[in-house]
Design a protein around this nucleic acid. Structure first.
Length: 197
DNA sequence: GGATCGATCGGCT
DNA sequence: GCCGATCGATCCG
């Protein structure tokens, strides 16, 4: 996988997109500088029947991007202070997305450290809200098309991650029935120190 | 190292 | 009015 990821990639079923995103590079152009990191942890949220999904109660103004076309961002605000970044998947009208939970920093590390209040190393991007702060991702990016030609947030191909390096497990911080709690829809690179929790 | 708790506010049952 | 797809500080062992 090389170059910018295109719409067809994001239009696949959500678990395939989640798996395919592992190892790819999330890029943010901030003040003319490239900040980027390798995606090492993701979670899939699939359809209104997914008890852990924001779409479980149907469409609202907040979750509307999840119902939109694939390849767009869904950025939401939680706990009164944190942002989380998702990539919308599958077909328009079906609410599904992949939450990016952790990155391994690649470019612009000093800028990330500044944005993270002087923190360094693992604390930079190991967690969905941390990576948003490190890369300057907030609600301004909610609904933005990551496949647009001159957007300042996008995902680049960066090689593939072998199956042997991938672990699947239950999602973090979800509630709902047993099915939602147990679904192994959190994927991460084994032994990567930037994986959260 | 692990458990617990407060911060803080937008979006909804 | 209540609660959250979290984080970081603090306390305990």
């Amino acid at each position: 996988m090389t170059g910018r990821l295109n719409r067809a990639f994001f239009a696949q079923d959500t678990l395939s997109v989640a798996r395919g995103l592992l190892g790819q590079r999330l890029v943010r152009i901030l003040d003319g500088e490239r900040l980027s990191g390798r995606i090492v942890e993701v979670e899939a949220y699939v359809g209104e029947k997914d008890q852990a999904s924001h779409a479980q109660c149907g469409r609202t103004e907040r979750n509307a991007p999840m119902y939109g076309p694939p390849g767009h961002a869904y950025v939401y605000f939680v706990y009164g202070m944190h942002h989380c970044f998702n990539v919308v998947t599958e077909r328009e009208g079906f609410p599904a997305a992949v939450l990016v939970r952790a990155l391994e920093p690649l470019e612009g590390i000093e800028a990330m450290q500044e944005r993270r209040g002087g923190r360094v190393g693992v604390e930079l991007t190991s967690g969905p809200a941390r990576l948003c702060q490190a890369l300057g991702i907030d609600r301004r990016f909610d609904g933005v098309d990551l496949c647009a030609p001159d957007v300042v947030l996008f995902i680049e191909g960066n090689g593939t991650m072998p199956d042997a390096a991938v672990t699947a497990g239950p999602r973090v911080g979800v509630r709902g029935d047993e099915r939602a709690l147990v679904a192994p829809w959190r994927l991460y690179e084994q032994d990567n120190r930037y994986v959260s929790r």
